[in-house]
Simulated scan of single mutants.
Amino acid sequence: MTSNDLHWDDLRIFLAVARSESLSGAGKILRVDPATVGRRIARLEERMGAPLFAKSPQGYAMTDAGQRLLVHAERAEQALAGALEEVRGQPGTLSGQIRIGAPDGCANYLLPQVCMRIMQDNPDLEVQIVALPRVVNLSRREADMAIAVSPPATGRLLVQKITDYRLHLAAARSYLDHHPPIRALDDLRGHRIIGYIPDMIFDKELDYLHEIGVERVAMASNSVPVQFNWVCQGGGIGVVHDFAIPSGQGIRRILPDLISLTRSFYLIRHADDRRLERLNRFAVALCDGLKAEVQRLEAQS
């Protein structure tokens, strides 16, 4: 096989299958028929002289040869992105599509307004927010960058702290008006508690109730907005982000002098993306915007 036998389009299809681990998933990414993706992968494997994927009912898993090709394919992808950025880029403005992955609390209560302000200054920019109650997988290119509540311990990643944020026990006035008063931690016994489904807590930093000493959760969800809606509707007491409180009606913090939690947001990016000026500039605007928005909303809570 000569260097002329392998083209960017081959690598583009290979990357889509590697990241989605299926022909149908790759077809959605590429907007082509899955059968066409399968034929292209088969031809690529024939030209490479080695199987790139192990096929099974569970999907397409990369072989050792596929893993070796992945390194070079991602480098080619980064080189092409950098070239397009330099050719198309306009000094002082951001354009093109950027996808951000984030836990659903940040994605619902912070990112919409922060990203809207960035886009007002950059009308050619397209932003996609992937809100997931789990860690976003950057290695599969689920997003260009991700926000997390704890820094990853492994991987070739760029990690920077964005800002701290605070959480408190809170409840709706409609709930507090019809239940016994809470003046001490012991008074929480007998009250209905709202929180995460224990076996679906995807990051130890989210295990708020264990830290407080609460053992039983009467109303549970893996979604922060669901928990907050329950609180707003008078369903019970929950640990609430201070930055979410202004979006509710009649939400009151409980025992703020006794129970106050602090967590942090981190921006995580692919290490190879450090050379992409467009993403660097967007990251700066995003971090500055998130820090300012957390401060603004917490001041209102």
Rank of each mutant, 00 (worst) to 15 (best):
A81S: 13
S24N: 13
S3Y: 11
F14I: 05
D203L: 09
R117S: 06
P225D: 05
L44N: 09
L185T: 01
C106V: 15
T262L: 00
R140S: 13
R47P: 00
V37Q: 02
H191D: 01
A131Y: 00
R140M: 08
V71Y: 02
S221E: 10
Y266D: 05
A299R: 09
E85Q: 13
G213I: 02
S260Q: 14
L70C: 01
G66L: 10
I29W: 10
E215K: 12
V226G: 04
A283V: 09
F202V: 11
T154W: 14
A26S: 05
I212M: 11
G25L: 09
C232E: 15
V130Y: 06
I118T: 09
E205H: 10
S221L: 06
R31K: 13
R156D: 12
D104V: 01
A244L: 07
L70Q: 06
V239T: 14
E21W: 01
A283S: 15
D124S: 14
L169G: 03
S150Q: 04
L255I: 02
W8N: 13
L80R: 15
V226Y: 02
Q295F: 03
E298R: 04
R274N: 08
P181D: 11
R296P: 03
I201L: 07
Q227H: 06
G59F: 09
L69E: 11
R19C: 10
A107H: 06
D288Q: 15
E74P: 07
D273F: 07
A50R: 09
R99W: 03
L255C: 03
M200Q: 15
L258S: 12
N280W: 00
K161D: 07
H191V: 02
L157D: 00
N280V: 01
D199L: 08
S22T: 05
M48E: 08
A244W: 05
R134M: 13
L276A: 05
M1E: 08
R156G: 08
F53Y: 09
S20M: 05
I254G: 04
A42N: 14
E277W: 06
A18F: 01
I129T: 11
I98P: 10
E142R: 10
I254C: 00
D257R: 03
L138H: 07
S139C: 04
I194Q: 12
L209K: 06
Y196A: 02
L69P: 08
G155P: 00
M200Y: 10
A171R: 04
P198Q: 11
H179S: 09
S221R: 09
N122D: 01
G38C: 06
G289Y: 04
E205Q: 13
H179L: 07
V71S: 04
E74D: 11
K161W: 00
Q233R: 14
A76Q: 12
A146E: 04
A76R: 10
L138Y: 10
E298Y: 06
C287I: 00
S3L: 14
S139Y: 12
T63Q: 10
Y60Q: 14
G250S: 11
G236L: 10
D242R: 14
L169D: 09
G105I: 06
A81Y: 11
V37A: 01
R275L: 02
P180R: 14
G105T: 05
G96Y: 07
G213K: 03
D203G: 09
P133I: 02
H72Y: 13
S264Q: 14
L158R: 13
G66I: 05
L279F: 06
E211K: 15
L169F: 00
S3M: 15
V284H: 14
R269V: 00
R252V: 01
I193C: 14
A218R: 03
S24R: 15
R183T: 15
K161A: 09
